[in-house]
Design a protein around this nucleic acid. Structure first.
Lengths: 110, 110
DNA sequence: GAGATTTATCGTAAAAAAACGATAAAGGTG
DNA sequence: CACCTTTATCGTTTTTTTACGATAAATCTC
């Protein structure tokens, strides 16, 4: 995260890499899909769906939260997680911008 | 890569995670952008642009290649890398599909 | 309030990623 | 052919990620 090396890259590249990293695990992809499928979700239910220990799932949820992709609210003993749509759309936009921008010169190479 | 745990996820999720991982480093983002900017590129020139040792850059190029994002051809002593546009477009499509599919229920949650 | 439930955090172990220098391989150049 | 260039690979170290069990903290139920 705070590696000396990585700060030498363009902030834009760092951001995109950071976001890609949040997606770089099948469990986190699965969590996002599961959260999207339901209107609201509880950690416990996600744990049942995933082949991972509760503590591990909790960790993945935390990472998704830190990346801004989801947000969690406490509801009694339970924690409710759901997708942070504002951020999600923004991030989605960043990716599509990266792909389309990069692809601008398509066909010229090789 | 061949972790026992990860094979327990949906192949689709594994694939997307794998591709996200390929993008999960600022150096690789920078390489892709640089390759896109030019029509063709040589490893040596990329090394000059990045704050990394030649061997490290070579490693990153290999990873991008394994993910299918770029392809390399040998031209004498030099290696020419360029974006694999076919794969790139396909991957771009996978990401936008993921984002739009996941976002289908937008607004319903929270 | 005693006990059960739910989830986050801590400590730790194992695996993977990142980085570098040194070196090998292979092609060019004098 | 001897030498220089270019890039891939090897060996190694360091850092980060992933995963788990145990436990703590908070709430709920009886």
């Amino acid at each position: 995260m705070t590696s000396l090396k990585k700060t030498q890259f363009a902030p834009e590249d760092q951001l995109l890499a950071e976001l890609a990293k949040a997606l770089a695990h099948p469990a986190r992809i699965a969590i996002l899909k599961e959260l999207a499928k339901r209107d609201m979700c509880i950690c416990g239910e996600i744990v049942e769906v995933l082949p991972l220990a509760q503590s591990t799932v909790s960790q993945h949820l935390k990472e998704l939260q830190q990346a801004g992709l989801i947000k969690g609210t406490v509801d009694g003993v339970k924690s409710c997680y759901c997708i942070n749509w504002e951020a999600f759309d923004k991030i989605s936009g960043l990716f599509s911008a990266f792909f389309s921008k990069t692809a601008e010169k398509s066909g010229k190479c090789c």
